[in-house]
């Protein structure tokens, strides 16, 4: 699998030779480290999970700039999933244990054993540890999910009889997608990011009523905004629109809005089926069924992969058309990953 990526390069996380932020360009280290399974961004680092379960890192680690080095996993790997924040990397190993690697003291910690399960009260000797399916972290929130439970590490915050299919988090909020297609949100709604129509904080995951009855198939959380794709391949966005990250006008003088406290259906001029969505701190990217990439929001660091005259873009623009690299690309975009001030596209053969 190849990769195009772009955005903030202040810590040389994308490229050691240049200090400037980059528009879409091809990642060139595949030969050295193997196929890319996943990529995760924090503000100062980029982390890549290879198909051999190794983590390759670049950017700032412990006050030093490193350049695509394989992280010593002390034998805790191989890993099957990673997520990254300013302070640490979360990783799931092959048997479902969760590990945290601290970027400050360069130590690995077993997270699974510190998760506070209610059943621990019962005195069963051979209690099995929970098997972690999903992890997600931002600079302020760290999440781990089993088949049907969610932990804001280490505290259990959610328990359902249904399967959890996705967890996501922004700087202040948590988004949970269930196999049933229901969406739950928790945390601060300072900028409407919870979508309940109010700006109140929610201490526990609350069902998003306005999308209830419509099956959600994919979700993502940006810094202060949230996106959901429904089974009809419609895109809904809500939360902060400060940089145009919702893809709708943010100029109050022209009837635009600075924040949307409830999901807003994003319209395209032509019939468009949305398949994937991924949000960064203040930007957004979506992929259509026809494999066309769209994006909006803050672009001061070229996080949309192209150079724009304005530093923000408050409507969805066709990046497949605008990026010279994407325009002549023949490979299928398999996955879109936005994080912090960066974006990446994983490509098929």
């Amino acid at each position: 699998m190849g990769m195009f990526w772009c955005g903030f390069n202040g810590f040389n996380q994308l490229n050691i030779e240049s200090n400037v932020d980059l528009d879409f360009h091809a990642y060139g280290n595949e030969g050295n480290h193997g196929e890319i399974l996943q990529v995760a961004f924090s503000w100062s680092t980029a982390s890549i999970l290879t198909n051999s379960g190794k983590i390759v890192m670049s950017g700032l680690i412990n006050q030093k700039i490193i350049n695509f080095e394989i992280l010593d996993d002390l034998g805790y790997g191989p890993f099957k999933s990673i997520s990254s924040s300013e302070s640490n990397i979360l990783a799931i190993d092959s048997i479902g244990n969760c590990w945290s690697y601290s970027k400050c003291n360069l130590k690995w910690n077993d997270i699974t054993s510190i998760l506070q399960r209610e059943e621990q009260v019962s005195v069963s000797e051979n209690q099995s540890q929970p098997s972690i399916n999903h992890i997600c972290c931002s600079d302020t929130i760290h999440l781990a999910a089993t088949y049907n439970e969610i932990y804001s590490i280490p505290t259990k915050i959610f328990n359902s009889k249904f399967k959890v299919t996705q967890v996501a988090c922004g700087f202040e909020h948590i988004v949970i997608l269930m196999e049933t297609g229901c969406l739950y949100t928790q945390g601060s709604s300072s900028r409407g990011q919870l979508g309940h129509g109010e700006l109140n904080e929610e201490d526990y995951p609350r069902l998003l009523i306005s999308l209830d009855g419509i099956r959600v198939i994919n979700t993502s959380a940006g810094g202060w905004h949230t996106a959901a794709i429904t089974e009809y391949n419609d895109l809904y966005m809500w939360g902060w629109n400060h940089s145009g990250q919702l893809g709708i006008s943010n100029c109050p003088e022209n009837g635009g809005i600075i924040m949307a406290p409830e999901p807003v259906l994003i319209n395209w001029q032509e019939e468009t089926d949305i398949e994937q969505v991924s949000l960064g701190a203040r930007h957004s990217m979506v992929l259509t069924k026809n494999n066309i990439l769209w994006g909006c929001g803050w672009n001061a660091h070229k996080q949309l992969g192209i150079e724009t005259y304005q530093l923000t873009c408050d409507r969805m623009i066709n990046l497949s058309n605008l990026s010279p690299l994407l325009k002549c690309n023949l490979r299928k975009i398999v996955k879109v990953v936005c994080g912090a001030w960066n974006s990446a596209l994983l490509l098929g053969k």
């Binding site: 202040g10 810590f11 503000w43 100062s44 700032l60 006050q63 300013e86 400050c104």
Partner: peptide, 8 residues
């Protein structure tokens, strides 16, 4: 305050 911010 913030290691990466101090560095940059």
């Amino acid at each position: 305050v913030h290691e990466a911010l101090d560095f940059l």
